[in-house]
Design a protein around this nucleic acid. Structure first.
Length: 485
RNA sequence: GACCCGUUCGUCUAGCUUGGCCUAGGACAUCGGCCUUUCACGCCGACAACAGGGGUUCAAAUCCCCUACGGGUCGCCA
């Protein structure tokens, strides 16, 4: 039987990092087994689900490069893939369950149940359903329904123990009296997660359910439903949670947690994929840098660990920088453009006209980036002078040799429009001869004179990429600042 | 509270199935050094962990039990 796995998000916003890892493991497993990866939209919560959010999910998956084989838009042999379009199926299966005695109508109101639960908890008993409606006759149920009461449908926990077989955790035994009879259809006819997930996975012929281990306690309920429906349960693989730095389940309060936030703050999809793959999974060869293709060939559920992982933003940053450093000038230009535009330091027309020069600039500062959004800060040297002289640059400029060096520099470059690297080197040599300024001091003086900082890209790229007019303007300004003190 | 799950450097992890090769390996971070006419990159090195206690065994990070701690779930959310 060929492998079929699914990613089943609720359309309530952008995909969260925890879900990215779940999607990724499903994807990697499917691709490595030559199976199919299915996208199912779990929109049974009508209140929170929106079509806009559904589109955000498509965008996020596309950006991440996680392509799927069946889903709402593209269809497939086991559709529809949107749960709101499957309500008829759920209703039919529920009728079947009631006929077989696995489910019954429950007329208890939400208020009654809440009160019951509170009372139980106050008395130190587990908050279980009393079973009040479980032995109601069909006649009475029909009568009350005819009288206008709206029942929910409740599933009967029909045996005392359930054994869950999990690829990661092994066999786990759950006593069913820890949860009791549970609702599968609300009074308004909409179905509940624990129920639809089983109907869908069974009918979509899902072979492996790979999801976060926060679902582990739900699994015995689902196994019960599989059995009642006459289906064989799929293989489960409950993967560990992702935690924030405080060791609590990763959430919005930890900052950057949606795919969109990572994208817009300058992270590369390949870094996200590579980093997330390393959370609770490791390769058998101690390597850590992998392309998506390498991950597919290396991935195995048997190498997924059991314990939760803390999301390490530092390591992600390192990896993102690693991938940025491997980008070509062309790629970098396209990638950084939105961030450059956004910073307002240069307009689109200029960036387009000076494309080749901008690419060279990008290449000269690339090694400093951690995120694409760092581009503007490092490109600042090229687009405008730092407003003030940095303390380090100030020290350099205070040296007696600095002013004569800068004056000589101004004099030498005035007949050029642009400096070539050779021009620059030659000029520096001449200045050295004339002023007697030596090595480091010479170069530092020019650097400080032009950029007013001692940090940033190599000086020869700054001198080469900037028009001489700009260079001399800057140096003159710095000189007058020195003279004023 | 009940029911589950988990516990190797600060963090991600290797090793645990099939005890000995583990004076516990790698990566990020940190700190040092080298490279370098800046910063960074790169290279080299240092620091740093088997939660605790009992067993079993010639031998335990690895097997068993207990304790502690952490996490998750207990909804007409998914």
């Amino acid at each position: 039987m060929s492998v079929r796995v699914r990613f089943a998000p609720s359309p309530t916003g952008h995909i969260h990092v925890g879900n990215v890892r779940t999607a990724l493991f499903n994807y990697l497993f499917a691709r490595s087994e030559g199976g199919r990866f299915i996208l199912r939209i779990e929109d049974t919560d009508l209140e929170r689900s929106t079509l806009e959010s559904e589109n955000l999910i498509y965008e996020d998956l596309k950006w991440l490069g996680l392509d799927y084989d069946e889903g709402p838009k593209m269809g497939g042999d086991y559709g529809p893939y949107r749960q709101t379009e499957r309500f008829g199926i759920y209703r039919k299966c529920a009728e079947e369950l009631m006929e077989k005695g696995y489910a019954y109508k429950c007329f208890c109101t939400k208020e009654e149940l809440d009160a019951e639960r509170e009372k139980a908890q106050a008395e130190g008993r587990p908050p279980l359903y009393s079973g009040k409606c479980s032995r109601m006759t069909k006649e009475e149920a029909d009568r009350r329904e005819a009288a206008g009461e709206k029942p929910s449908i409740r599933f009967r926990a029909f045996k005392p123990n359930v054994l869950v077989k999990d690829m990661i955790h092994g066999e786990i035994n759950f006593p069913t009296n820890s949860f009791g009879d549970f609702i599968i259809i609300r009074p308004d006819g909409t179905p509940i997660y624990n129920y639809v997930v089983v109907v869908d996975d069974a009918m979509m012929k899902i072979t492996h359910v790979i999801r976060g281990d926060d679902h582990l306690p739900n699994t015995p309920k689902q196994v019960l439903i599989y059995e009642a429906l006459g289906y064989e349960a799929p293989t489960f693989a409950h993967i560990p949670m992702i935690l924030g730095p405080d060791h609590a389940k990763l959430s919005k309060r930890h900052g950057n947690t949606s795919v969109e936030q990572f994208r817009s703050s300058g992270y590369l999809p390949e870094a996200m994929i590579n980093y997330m793959a390393l959370l609770s999974w490791s390769s058998d060869d101690e390597k850590e840098l992998f392309s998506k293709e390498e991950l597919i060939s290396k991935f195995s559920l048997s190498r997924v660990s059991k314990s939760a992982a803390v999301f390490d933003f530092d390591k992600l940053d390192w990896m993102n920088g690693y991938y940025i450093r491997r980008k070509t000038a062309d790629e970098l230009y396209g990638l950084c453009l939105p961030f450059l535009l956004d910073s307002g330091m240069a307009d689109g027309g200029f960036l387009e006209k000076e494309k080749e020069r901008v690419k060279a600039m990008l290449l000269s500062v690339r090694d400093n980036f951690v995120k694409l959004s760092d581009a503007p800060a490092f490109m600042e040297v090229y687009f405008k002078r730092a407003a003030e002289i940095t303390p380090e640059a100030g020290e350099v400029l205070a040296l007696e040799t600095s002013a004569p060096v800068l004056e000589a520099f101004l004099d030498k470059i005035k007949n050029y429009e642009y400096l070539s690297p050779e021009d620059y080197k030659g000029i520096m040599k001449e200045i050295q001869k004339e002023t007697g300024a030596k090595g480091k001091a010479l170069y530092m003086a020019v650097r400080a004179g032009v950029t007013r900082s001692t940090k940033g890209p190599e000086m020869d790229s700054v001198a080469t990429l900037l028009p001489v007019k700009e260079l001399s303007g800057r140096v003159e300004e710095t000189l007058s600042m020195i003279r004023r003190g």
